[in-house]
Design a protein around this nucleic acid. Sequence first.
RNA 1: GGCCUGGUAGCCAAGUGGUAAGGCAGAGCUCUGCAAAAGCUCUAUGCGUCGGUUCGAUUCCGACCCAGGCCUCCA
Length: 530
Amino acid sequence: MVFDTMRGAKVPLELLEPGRCGIYCCGPTVYDDAHIGHARAALMPDVLVRTLRARDIEVTYVRNVTDVDDKIIARAERERTTADAVAERYTARYHEDLAALGMLPPDVEPKVTEHIDDIVALCRTLEAKGLAYVRDGNLYFRVRAFPGYGALSRRNPDEMRSGARVEVDERKEDPLDFALWKAARPGEPVWDSPWGPGRPGWHIECSAMSMRYLGERFDVHAGGRDLVFPHHENEIAQSRGATCDTCFAQYWMHNGFVTFAGEKMSKSLGNFFTIREVIARYPGEAVRAFLLGVHYRSPVNFDVRVSCPSCGADLEPGAQERGTCTACGATFDPGALRAQIELPGVAEADERVAYVYRTLEGIERFFGGDVPPAEEGDVDPTVSGMRAAVDAALSDDLNTSAALAALSEPMALANRWLASGKGVPKKVRRATLARLFRDLRGQRPGDPKEGGISGLLGLFAADPGPYLRRRRDARAARMGLDVARIEQLLHERQAARAARDFEAADRLRDELRSMGVSVLDGPEGSDWTV
RNA sequence: GGCCUGGUAGCCAAGUGGUAAGGCAGAGCUCUGCAAAAGCUCUAUGCGUCGGUUCGAUUCCGACCCAGGCCUCCA
């Protein structure tokens, strides 16, 4: 089941061709670093692709890059470089960011500049069908000539006119009409066309590229909610106008928004965060887990906590803007606060991800590093039902929140049995722990087909030990701690403990604690964490 | 003004026509030289308000209130 915006309801996903699925996702316009909203928009189709591939459905996942656009041109002018250079830079950075969040690369990533011919061809078809007209070298789509306009966004073209607050372009026949091809202005990237030199309008590229790679009729078209109107509505008009009324995407899936501090974040801090900013502070997996904790259609809010640089008190938005702490009176540069913002929701998700890795590491240790393959019998039902619960959750319109919840009980059971095998048949204990590990990670952790749950969610695919150590060291570094010094104090404490000088050992523990380091005593010695 | 979402415990968040997943925080406990980790137990007679349908509604219907979004570039 999948929620289709066109039908306004959850409906069974019936593929055009059983066993195959074409998915098109509106990718970014590459004029700046991607923000968390872009991450979420990429995440929904990512989970869909993983879910389908896990079921042996052959997915063709297309996600475009829009590399010609007013904003790219503007930025290039500002930086005295070319639009190509700007687009190239931010495309590369986009790839890095998404990789850090565990996103699968699309099978095809078409760029607008490489599909001008397809776009021109589509425009010509529309013109030939009387759905487009030329004015001063611009080609416009004639909205009134397309009867189904407004179906996706539930809008009536007649009612929209009064509400239109857009500046009316006098060249258009109707204010609703939109540009398919824009006449060139000096200094802009330019391509030849039957209507003169120019470049594509905004919506046409997605029509051209999706149909180019997926055919005139394909299964799913995904994107952010804000694209429903006008972008997707216009795509439908262009595409169906050029082909047929039932052509183009059969299902429309839209993800909800991302807000920060309920939208009302301090202006001095900016109202959005880039992916890079966030993953500089938290593991990519924590961000992904946080996002997956909320159903994709609901809005997700990042709580933001800003504390005073000198006294540590929480700063209200007003205090943030003024640069004065209401608690201690300290003054500071509001801009500098950005670097020390905390995102409690992500921090919580980070802990949760670490918990799973700790459990996984525990299972590895239990088996002496080599977890046996999953066995069929003798597995506790709490664990044997886990995978099915995850599958069921994902089947229900990608309910990742429920999928994540399905891991809780099995994890608790594992930790209980890791700590003690009391009252549990040895065979059951071993089989259950092995099964949990295998169902979670499969043969190839993270792989949609062979990676078990990790391949479905794109989570928990790293090697537990190294993941945990990396996380710890990164946290220590952020706190300004010297790892070598910590290790040395730990060493001294070990010596004290060995000599049964617990007073000295506790003193050292306290010293470490004052640095923010927790000492962990285990059967095989002591470790630390922050 | 039009259209669309959503209002579930201190916080985050699933979900259902038959009496509320999960997480965080909190309390108690187990384990531990201490601590951490981990585990166990407890924590919403109630799911915005008011009506209606029903044997029974948080779940369906209606009205209202509130919040957010879209109608203009936007993931």
